[in-house]
Amino acid sequence: MYFDSLHAALAMEGHGPFVWAAYAITAVVLLTLLLSPVLRSRRLRRDLAGEIRRRETAAGEGRHASGT
């Protein structure tokens, strides 16, 4: 470990705000990049599943109605 204490690591001899801002922005962008396809595909799968279920029940009801 190059720094003596956590405080020294945060301050980085005056360059802390620059370094930590750069790493924080990168972390936010990368997390968004990885999470957005996960969330969007989860929603797409849910929507598709709902659509299939609706169609199946509609088909089922149609059959039922014709039966009576």
């Binding site: 690591a9 620059f18 370094v19």
Partner: peptide, 21 residues
């Protein structure tokens, strides 16, 4: 890059940004 490398002889600690840049 942030904690276990020495700082650069001229830029000091700001050079640690190169590890993502």
């Amino acid at each position: 890059g942030l904690f276990y490398t020495a700082p650069d002889f001229r830029q000091g600690n700001s050079y640690r940004i190169i590890y993502i840049h």
